[in-house]
Computed example of a mutant assay.
Amino acid sequence: MLIKSFLDYLRYERNYSEKTVLAYGEDIKQLQEFAQEEYGKFDPLEVEGELIREWIVSLMDRGYTSTSVNRKLSSLRSFYKYLLRQGEVTVDPLRKITGPKNKKPLPVFLKESEMDKLLDDTDFGEGFKGCRDRLIIEMFYATGMRLSELIGLDDKDVDFSASLVKVTGKRNKQRLIPFDEELGRSMREYVNVRNEAVPIRSDAFFVRKNGKRLYRSIVACLVKRNLSKVVTVKKRSPHVLRHTFATAMLNNGADLGSIKELLGHESLATTEVYTHTTFEELKKVYNQAHPRA
């Protein structure tokens, strides 16, 4: 009766949709079934925190995500707040219950073979635009810089003699990123083509045909368009190339501290997400290759 009166309260006083009311009822029913299975009975007025914790563990063991478990806990919290207002209980059994933390999604990145195919085998087109678009992809992959940092580059920020590029990151913090001979050649080629095709231009390193600085949507669009030629992942943004840079560095022996500095992260904890990424890839390889996996 208590459960029915709660659902009627949601339905008629709170005007919740029938779908929502049914979901609340199903969540409470799940706890009821668990309690009856484990202890042979279920009385909402006698539920204690220990039962809720055991139920949470059972849900996680059955493969429920932390998001689903927290949604179910939200239903129970509403139920017991209702019982408290009605004077049916004096203590909320969920008062000290903390739901499982939602896992952050792992960064999406491209494999080195996919980047090789993109940079070595993909036709970016002729002339200024093709040369510029290819360099943008290569620069993201070779330096790990952010989109805002790339479009903010000026000619004066590129030091060819020292093979360094100065970028301005979050909160106007500047850092130096080294580049290798291959990227240096691509950058020199672009500058030569750009200077001939766009003689009158702004101070920006990457410009449009009219000589003005590129803006975010142009770069995001060209990255998405070109990544679509080699991968089918849903996320195909400049940030994916930043993740790809960090993952490739880690896979090829770079230490986390160095990657942190190159990416311009404030905290090493932010960089450590890439160790989880590479471990997930390692698990996939193991499961595919090991005969006993």
Rank of each mutant, 00 (worst) to 15 (best):
E18Y: 12
S75T: 00
S113E: 13
K103Q: 11
K170M: 07
D159R: 01
Y9L: 02
L76Y: 07
T278D: 10
P105F: 00
R194T: 13
S237Y: 14
S161L: 07
E196M: 09
L59A: 14
S217N: 13
D8V: 00
S186N: 13
A289I: 04
G63K: 03
H239Q: 08
I97K: 04
N226W: 15
V285N: 02
G264Y: 01
R188S: 15
R225S: 13
T271E: 04
P93V: 10
I200N: 08
N15E: 14
A248M: 12
R201G: 10
W55I: 12
N226F: 15
G49R: 00
D116P: 00
K4V: 00
S66W: 00
V207P: 08
G211E: 10
I151K: 05
M187K: 03
L76C: 07
G211W: 06
R292L: 10
G253I: 10
L119P: 08
S217P: 02
L227F: 13
G152D: 03
T270C: 06
T98K: 09
F128V: 11
K283D: 14
Q32R: 15
C131W: 07
A142H: 02
V158P: 11
E281H: 04
L94C: 10
L84Y: 14
F128L: 13
G211N: 07
D157W: 05
Y24F: 02
K72W: 03
S267P: 04
P100W: 08
D116R: 06
G253A: 07
D61G: 11
L2C: 03
V273S: 07
V47F: 03
F6D: 04
D203M: 12
V223M: 11
P100H: 08
V230P: 05
F140Q: 09
I3C: 00
T278F: 00
V233T: 15
H239M: 05
K81D: 12
R77F: 05
I3Q: 00
K29Q: 07
N195G: 13
E266D: 06
L106Q: 05
L10T: 01
L176T: 09
A246H: 05
E114R: 03
